[in-house]
Computed example of a mutant assay.
Amino acid sequence: MEALPELRVLVLKSNKFDGNMSLPSRSNLPFQKLQVLDISDNEFVGSLPQTYFKNFRAMMDVKENKTDLITSSDDFDFLRYVEMRITLKGLDLLLKRLLKTFTTIDLSSNNFSGSIPDSIGNLNSLRYLNLSHNNLMGHIPASLGNINVLESLDLSWNKLDGGIPSVLTRLTFLADLNLSMNDLVGQIPQSTQFSTFENDSYVGNLRLCGFPLTRKCNEEDGQRMQPEEQDDEDDEYGFIDGFGWRSVVMGYGSGIIVGIGIGCWIIRFGRPRWLVEFFFGVGYTYKKNKKKKKKTRKRATPTQRRS
């Protein structure tokens, strides 16, 4: 398929396709006119297709003036009447037109591994990028800052580490950002655009700090510093987690058994006197001793009674 010179839309999502897309290409210029690549929810493995990222010409340097939208009558019919259902910003949408400036890559929900190649920054006309729910590792490439028209970026549910590149603040068109469920660290870059993203964009990255998260950062090294109230709360939960429910149940059970035993001992022998009188009233010990003396007299032998 990569040799098809007029292929603009390739949607293979929600199947059981597998294989490695990073193998050497058989074409010198694969997918020259491809604008939409959606292979989400499959079983592809290996690293991301870096060769394609370097050659998606229709996702590079696309002009936005109307004269470049239509180059022929055939293009006009295709651009106007094409229908495709794709997921954008978490919503399943049916598109009935394909503008030349519309570009998207969705490789989510596969088994891609390795790092995100810097070559993805070559696609400076890419609008939507979704690499979520894979096994990607390493840092977020700073080259993403070159995609000036990027509107949606989803890298969630991977194993990415390191900090969030400050160059991403250049993406002034970015309306949707999801970096959740990774292992990112350090301070969240601050800009007018980034201030519009809420906690959901960063949840699951326990070592991130700064607005909009409640975790504060040290001004010198950007390390996470917990507020005092948060520290107290963490200590409390740590205390509970450390003991576990089994230990708590065993402690309560042992306490109940010991308490019952002590209670029986107090009732039987009337000691200590002050505790018995506190619970059973003044004179309880005296009455108990009097009953004991009566029982002793009844059990006495006839000889003892005569004497």
Rank of each mutant, 00 (worst) to 15 (best):
M1T: 10
M1D: 11
M1L: 11
E2Y: 00
L7E: 07
L7G: 04
L7Y: 06
V11I: 14
L12K: 10
L12E: 07
L12C: 15
N15H: 11
M21C: 13
S25C: 13
L29Y: 11
L29G: 08
P30F: 03
Q32V: 13
Q32Y: 07
L34V: 02
E43I: 10
F44V: 03
G46I: 07
S47L: 01
Q50T: 09
Q50G: 07
F53E: 01
N55F: 04
F56G: 00
A58Y: 08
A58G: 10
M60H: 08
K66G: 07
L69M: 15
L69R: 12
I70T: 04
S72L: 06
S73W: 06
S73A: 12
D74G: 13
D75H: 07
D75K: 05
Y81G: 02
E83H: 02
M84S: 00
M84W: 03
M84R: 05
R85C: 15
I86W: 02
G90K: 10
G90I: 09
L91F: 08
D92P: 04
L94C: 09
L98M: 15
L98A: 14
K100V: 00
T104F: 05
T104V: 14
T104E: 01
D106T: 08
D106W: 00
D106K: 07
I116R: 04
D118W: 08
I120H: 03
L123H: 06
N124P: 04
S125L: 00
L131K: 07
L131F: 12
H133S: 03
G138P: 00
G138K: 00
H139N: 09
I140T: 02
I140M: 03
A142E: 10
S143W: 01
N146K: 15
N146A: 12
I147E: 02
L150Q: 01
L150C: 09
E151K: 11
E151R: 09
L155R: 00
N158P: 02
K159S: 13
D161V: 15
S166E: 01
S166H: 09
V167S: 05
T169S: 09
L171S: 03
A175P: 04
N178Q: 05
L179C: 10
N182K: 11
Q187V: 14
I188A: 00
E198K: 15
D200Y: 11
L206F: 12
G210R: 04
T214R: 15
K216S: 02
C217I: 12
R224P: 07
M225P: 02
D231Y: 06
D232P: 03
E233D: 06
D235F: 13
Y237L: 13
I240F: 12
D241W: 07
D241T: 06
G242I: 04
F243Q: 12
W245S: 14
R246S: 15
R246H: 15
S247Q: 12
V249K: 14
M250I: 12
Y252K: 08
G253S: 13
G253M: 10
S254G: 15
G255H: 10
I257N: 10
G259L: 15
G259Y: 13
G259M: 15
I260K: 06
G261C: 14
C264E: 02
I266Q: 08
R273F: 02
R273A: 04
W274I: 14
L275P: 05
V276N: 01
G281F: 06
T285G: 05
T285M: 05
Y286P: 06
K287V: 06
K292F: 03
T296E: 07
T296G: 06
R297T: 07
A300D: 09
T301C: 12
